[in-house]
Design a binder for these strands. Structure first.
Lengths: 151, 151
DNA sequence: GATGAAACAGCCGAGCT
DNA sequence: AGCTCGGCTGTTTCATC
């Protein structure tokens, strides 16, 4: 489904999403229209789901990053999912194995706002909060490998 | 340090990093050169740290995503940090409060490769792994707010 | 997938507020 | 000092092979 060139294009766009199509074309030894068509296909198939700017949240005033574990009863999920999607300070939310079934990554200006938010979450269940001290590996794209599935 | 226009530009680039400067200029009612200069400044100040393509890891063959808690002795961090940065399957690694001081997000083709990786991590300390079932809120940029710091 | 042409966007200067 | 305008260069896209 993905050939070597598609994987190379994805890799280049992961490291710089604003690279020009012409430059991409040079890197993979293809013409610009050919690359353009490949990108359209990758986007249409939702293999590439978007292009985003990465920002320094501390410099934007979000000094506190944290992971919140939240134990949500299965029956509450229909209420919880729309709620969590609308929270502006939620960077990511995953449903995971284990006692605390939701793992939520958030950013706040200070612990005051974090505390308020955790208070709101407690209507859904027990929480456990871990504050981020440092980030040895910032969120990054991982290389597309050979074992991509057919579809 | 950041005015309303800077915040709007960041927000637009977070939702689509490949938007043209001309289009950005129209959105904020400025000229293209003015927007270009603002972006250069935001990049130079490392407020915008990069532009990345988001991909569907399942479609790339990474069927298993997981969070691994790892208890690392402080003295081991000088060895652990370079190690974890070089691991190709690590999406993110944070140092956090609590017993398990590292929280590592990874993606693997199957539980077999995940198991092998967890085995490697155990030279650094005790681990606890939680596999992702679903992702109600995928990793996303949060809106730049008014309380951005001076610098 | 390549080529060439036309439309478009980005860049650098000059002049203005 | 920072913005806008104009012309030049580079980029994207479309039609054709």
């Amino acid at each position: 489904m993905l050939d070597k060139i598609d994987r190379k294009l994805i890799e280049l766009l992961q490291s710089n999403a604003r690279i020009s199509i012409k430059r991409l074309a040079q890197e993979v030894f293809l013409s610009a229209p050919a690359v353009s068509a490949r990108l359209e296909r990758l986007e249409k198939l939702k293999i590439i789901t978007g292009y985003t700017a990465s920002v320094d949240y501390v410099k934007l005033g979000y000094h506190i990053m944290a992971f919140i574990n939240l134990e949500v009863a299965p029956s509450e999920k229909v209420v919880f999912y729309p709620f969590i999607q609308k929270c502006p300070n939620v960077i990511e939310c995953n449903c995971i194995t284990g006692n605390y079934s939701m793992l939520i990554k958030v950013a706040f200006p200070s612990t005051v706002e974090l505390d308020t938010f955790v208070g709101q979450l407690q209507q859904f269940g027990h929480t456990q909060t871990q504050i981020v001290f440092s980030t040895p590996v910032p969120h990054r794209g991982i290389k597309p490998a050979d074992y991509s599935e057919e579809q």
